[in-house]
Design a protein around this nucleic acid. Sequence first.
RNA 1: GGAGAAGUGGCAGAGUGGUUUAAUGCACCGGUCUUGAAAACCGACGUGGGUGCAAGCCCACCGUGGGUUCAAAUCCCACCUUCUCCGCCA
Length: 429
Amino acid sequence: MHDIRAIRDNPAAFDAALARRGLSGMSAEVLAIDEARRAGILAAETAQAAQNAASREVGAAKARGDDAEFERLRALVAEKKAEIARLSEGAAAEDARLRDLLLTIPNLPLAEVPDGPDETGNVEIFRWGTPRRFDFAAKEHFDITGVKPGMDFQMAAKLSGSRFVVLRGAVIRVHRALAQFMLDTHITEHGLTETWTPVLVKEDAMFGTNQLPKFAEDSYQTTNGWWLIPTSEVTLTNTVAGEILDEGQLPIRMTAHTQCFRSEAGSSGKDTAGMLRQHQFEKVEMVSITTPETSLAEHDRMTRCAQAILEKLGLPYRTVVLCTGDMGFGAQKTHDLEVWLPGQNTYREISSVSVCGDFQARRMNARYRAPGGKPEFVHTLNGSGLAVGRALIAVLENGQQEDGSVDLPAVLQPYLGGRTRIAADGTLA
RNA sequence: GGAGAAGUGGCAGAGUGGUUUAAUGCACCGGUCUUGAAAACCGACGUGGGUGCAAGCCCACCGUGGGUUCAAAUCCCACCUUCUCCGCCA
């Protein structure tokens, strides 16, 4: 959420930043509501102050036993009451109106973010590894002979419908190994604190990390009002909601491995084959809470943490900076990591690392205090480290052999009882 | 799920209808004293909003939301959370 004062102070800069995202200016509308709101507050508070003063006189009259004066003032104050109620209601309505509008305006891109209309405007900044040369036609993950016995979309359709999968045997063991490997790497080498959280959350949490109010159709809600998290960014980030942290506690670096649930209402028809895009998937997430001064450096650090996972797995990837037109709602700047998928002969997103500045902190009212200082909003960052299902796809497609078997990354061996490959018959070997 | 108890500032803890501003202690911060520190003493010490060039002034906030009253931390209702006991359960 935006700071109304910042918009008031420099409406032109605010509109210019929105324009970079392809949006029309909103400062005029925001400021008009803000003006009405402040006028309403002033009127209501002035009336309230008058009543408070009169009430004190009533008390004084009562105390000295002046019954006539007491009755006269009492009636006067009672008369004022309706007026105050009406004014307060108006002020509260304008205040809510402003907040509702501010909640729907996306974060502003940092100056260094490239301008662009959509993903075609993204800028590659780093590339690692060389895609392997195949002397046979590389298959997509679901077509690999050794994978087929362990990846059952028909069974999932029977249970749940489309965009779900049932995994069995070697395939799910590799999936589990990947998640364990990522978590272990983050906690032992990257200094993140492993955290386990609920996947059902209250509405407030979804507002805090800006899934709500704008993107309600992307997530699932239970009949009693809980939301299923689309990412553990929601729970990890909201751990600091409403808090005033000591500066010494920062940065807070967390990681969690959770189920994620997305209805993906807007993307039906995209990536329908295979398990690239599912309603339920697993992700190892990273979240950092920092001071304003350190958030950009933290963004690079977090990007490195995600890159390190891909490098240890030996998966070729590239890193792009998302352009203004492709960034998510809450981001100031985003790095996407795209892993090479031989079956699709292209790079596909496997991680997205964003710095949000104080955008989410304002929504959550998450602050910190430097010694002797005033509370200030923290900065928040989140990134995938990595999407486990997509990492599985990448491992399978990059390791596939002509005979239908799959060679697995060496770093996974400790999690696979020393085994190194999935045989063509679908068993670990 | 049932019964009971409790939610007050960073912490502890008073305050059951009104005599401006939530007592007091601890912690933190500034100062006096001291070679330095401690102790002692003095002072300052919450959050958000509005208004003003500023000093300042005003409004709200005692778990949350309603209500009663001229007036609510205090009385009433609902909800949330925590604790104790019981039930159930991986």
